[in-house]
Design a protein around this nucleic acid. Structure first.
Lengths: 334, 334
DNA sequence: CTGTTAGCGCATTCAT
DNA sequence: ATGAATGCGCTAACAG
């Protein structure tokens, strides 16, 4: 390994001069500068980022900690990356497997130290665990769970989004809308917020929501959505609409409906949440609540950047607005 | 920040004893050990990973460098993570934006130094650029392009997979199969290999492949696939099958076919490549060549692990086998 | 089993 | 404008 000292010797200068040239810090005379650069080229020198980090206390790297790399998180990460890079930093992804133990480990001070800031998608952590997160490191939480006041947080307008989708289904003629993957669980969570939106849409339409139409899923995958939908169909309860808690779950429902000979949107209207790329293209097009990746990414990186710049005001809790994207899985205007 | 020295003082031992306790290296007497652990707890000490790295020359971290975080790469990353973790290391993802400049930067010695090993998805780099990658760091290339002999590489059996898919389409009755997203371009390995498989399937069936049915796409997205498919339909050339170069492109084709009133599989059979999760569920189920994430992940991590263990034999070039998964987008057996 | 010595490669501080 | 000294926090090697 070639070190700065080797470059310095080759260029006939001191180590500090090399450092100053490479970091463009103190002004360096042009001839000296040229000699240093020549030596850097000749020796193929590359700075040792670890040593710089230890000395300077800065990595120029931000971590996005996610439960899994695919689908929603991967798409969001692609939106975060340019914003982080615009500030001259790298973005790296770390995975927690939606597992509370690993998620805590990812949050351990040890792991945090190697990043200038951390964006954490909170999936497997409850409020109590999050309360224990005490760190001076800049950190912003992302996701649809309740979080402690002292931590910055960006989440979606879940209830409003579910309301939009359900109201749309009702307006377009559905009267019995399954809330697939929603729940009554007490914790302030994605599935309960979205269930509340579903409920309020009924109320606002002068109808009454039947709790029997709140159908949980075993896991938030297409398979989970498919199985739950098939079970519901088998139960014989009449229905003419499905609001799925995520597009992934909606895709499972679509599959189940197709296999059961139910036509979308003629027999059953379908709406999802997240507006994944694929939802544009899956025939007949899945109506979905857009998860506003741009807005979430911008808010999160903004909050993080502010902290990394030394701002120390109180934590902020941003609720990113959402909008409904109407496609072929719901019927045309009356 | 609380350092090891603080713990040592609190426990009344030397710094080295603390280090030995925490790393479980040299045996430490039980009472001493208990005192140290108590002090660690009391002070909330966490090891400084940067200092450890600088001193020990080891990060216990592997990077997976990808062109983008979503879809194929995200899914593959989820398969890599457990394998890397099984060896006691972390996996982190870095993005290159399929941009040669950034990809080279990700490969720069400076960036590599902070990882014990690197898995690189080669998307935006050509052979010449890869030849310049000279590093002692363990590195394994993933992807469907040509790479220099001196670098370890894992890729898919592209031609064989395309052959499987096309032969299946022909066997189930298609005679004019569009090779969507394929090409004759020498540089783009994936698309040419898959085109070759398509061609050979024709030949093996005693038919002749018409180059007019090799339809390029502007980019490898669903939108690109959709637009190219719509253009082809508009051209009026008769066709009764589509082999799409990826499932993402196949989804675009499915969308175009649906909008054009063509039924899948009755009017047009469709097959893709990658077997993304969604392909199971998108009605009528997309027949696809499975990208064998397990096999690719296992081979790649195996090669990387071998290098990280100090093995220095010649580079290996693994071709992971693929298989066809038949679903509703192709017709049942004759 | 425990402590001492030394230094990983760089950047901050101060001197020249 | 350049250089010398110092130490970031930790662990390898050795001494006791």
């Amino acid at each position: 390994m070639v070190r700065m000292a080797d470059v310095a010797r080759a260029a006939g200068v001191s180590v500090m001069t090399v450092s100053n040239v490479l970091n463009e810090r103190l002004p360096v005379g042009e001839p000296t500068r040229a000699r240093v650069m020549a030596a850097v080229e000749a020796l193929g020198y590359e700075v040792n980022l670890t040593a710089r980090h230890l000395r300077a206390g800065r990595t120029d790297t931000v971590a996005f900690v996610v439960p899994s790399f695919h689908d929603y998180f991967g798409e969001l990460a692609d939106h975060l990356a340019p914003l982080v890079e615009a500030e001259g930093r790298h973005l790296v992804l770390e995975r927690t497997s939606a597992n509370a133990e690993q998620e805590m480990e990812a949050l351990s001070v040890a792991r945090l130290q190697i990043y200038d800031g951390v964006l954490l998608s909170v999936a497997g952590l409850d409020l109590e665990q999050l309360r224990r997160v005490r760190t001076a490191k800049p950190i912003v939480l992302l996701g649809e769970r309740d979080v402690p006041d002292h931590l910055n947080h960006v989440r979606l307008a879940n209830e409003s989004g579910a309301h939009l989708a359900t109201a749309h289904l009702i307006e377009r003629g559905s009267r019995r809308v399954v809330a697939l993957g929603c729940s009554f669980d007490g914790a302030h969570m994605m599935t309960t917020d979205r269930r509340a939106g579903w409920e309020h849409a009924y109320r606002d339409a002068g109808l009454t929501a039947d709790p029997a139409y709140v159908v949980p899923v075993s896991d938030y995958t297409s398979l989970g959505g498919r199985d739950a939908m098939l079970d519901f169909i088998a139960s014989g309860l009449p229905f003419d609409g499905v609001f799925a808690v995520t597009d992934i779950v909606a895709l499972g429902a679509l599959s189940a409906l197709a296999d059961s000979g139910l036509r979308v949107p003629d027999d059953v209207q379908l709406a999802g949440f997240d507006n994944l790329d694929m939802s544009h293209f899956i025939p007949p097009g899945i109506t979905s609540v857009d998860a506003n990746h741009e807005g979430v990414a911008e808010a999160a990186v903004g909050l993080l950047h502010r902290q990394m710049s030394g701002w120390t005001g109180p934590a902020e809790h941003v609720v990113a607005p959402v909008r409904l994207v109407v496609r072929g899985s719901t019927r045309g205007g009356a």
